[in-house]
Amino acid sequence: MLPGLVLLTSACTQPPAESTAASLAEQRRRMPPDTTGYESRPPADPNGISRYYLGRQIAHVMGHEGADWLERNGRQEEEGTDILLRELKLKPTDVVADLGAGTGYFSFRISPLVPQGRVLAVDIQPEMITSLKQNKERRQITNVEPVLGTVQNPNLTARSVDLVLIVDAYHEFDHPREMMRAVRAALTPTGRLALVEYRAEDSRVPIKRIHKMSLEQARKEMAAVGLEFIENVETLPQQHLMFFRRAK
């Protein structure tokens, strides 16, 4: 070998494919288990994304272009929205967060039920916030406050909310773990979460499977962020009405 000459042949040699695969498998085996509950894999349902949470495929978000569907004729009869509002058992002084408020369908119906309280109408789409503000001005309602959130945080003050209402929106959250941790932090010590989702257990409910949730799955996901199940009220025509609170 000539002085100063360094052979690089061995350093550039690629190991056999089998060796590389075995090495990666060993690395994965030694990694600590994933505690976030998230998984990325090809979507089983084209109506969902390639992101899964605790085994559940997350659905695509309904954009602001579908706002008319939220205000559709017949929604009250289809979903029993008047029954839902009654089952919330709100007090006049309650602070309520309507998470995924959209155009404010529920926010403006809750408003007169909490005359000494407030309704925080939370949405992550600026277009929906614009719609909320326009509807608020048109209706001349003063106790509804539009709040722009993010996919990970509803931007609610800690321990300030008596009830968080999420209607047919949770299954579309891109970051359910982070969002619900923030929801838990926003609840007062006696605060409640009312989670409303179409019943996956009932094949007669005319909604795509990915836009439904079972009681079992909902309880598992809420427990993962420290929310304790209280009860499931089955008085709505097509949906679960599930109540949770901060775990002790």
Rank of each mutant, 00 (worst) to 15 (best):
221 E>R: 05
3 P>I: 09
31 M>V: 00
61 V>G: 01
170 Y>C: 06
14 Q>G: 14
47 N>Q: 10
159 R>Q: 14
5 L>F: 03
11 A>V: 08
201 E>G: 05
174 D>C: 11
208 K>D: 15
245 R>Y: 06
60 H>K: 12
241 L>V: 14
191 G>H: 02
150 T>P: 09
70 L>F: 14
172 E>H: 14
148 L>W: 05
63 G>I: 04
85 L>A: 15
148 L>R: 07
165 L>D: 13
141 I>L: 14
174 D>W: 15
241 L>N: 10
55 G>M: 00
208 K>Q: 13
51 R>V: 08
202 D>A: 08
47 N>F: 09
123 D>E: 08
179 M>G: 04
245 R>I: 05
136 K>G: 02
203 S>V: 09
59 A>G: 03
74 G>L: 07
104 G>F: 05
156 L>T: 01
67 A>C: 14
20 T>Q: 10
165 L>Y: 11
46 P>D: 04
21 A>K: 06
176 P>R: 13
176 P>I: 09
6 V>L: 11
98 D>Q: 05
74 G>R: 07
209 R>Q: 12
102 G>A: 11
42 P>A: 10
172 E>W: 08
97 A>R: 00
83 I>N: 07
55 G>Y: 02
194 A>K: 11
240 H>C: 12
87 E>H: 03
93 T>Q: 07
71 E>M: 15
137 E>K: 02
24 L>F: 10
123 D>N: 05
129 I>Y: 07
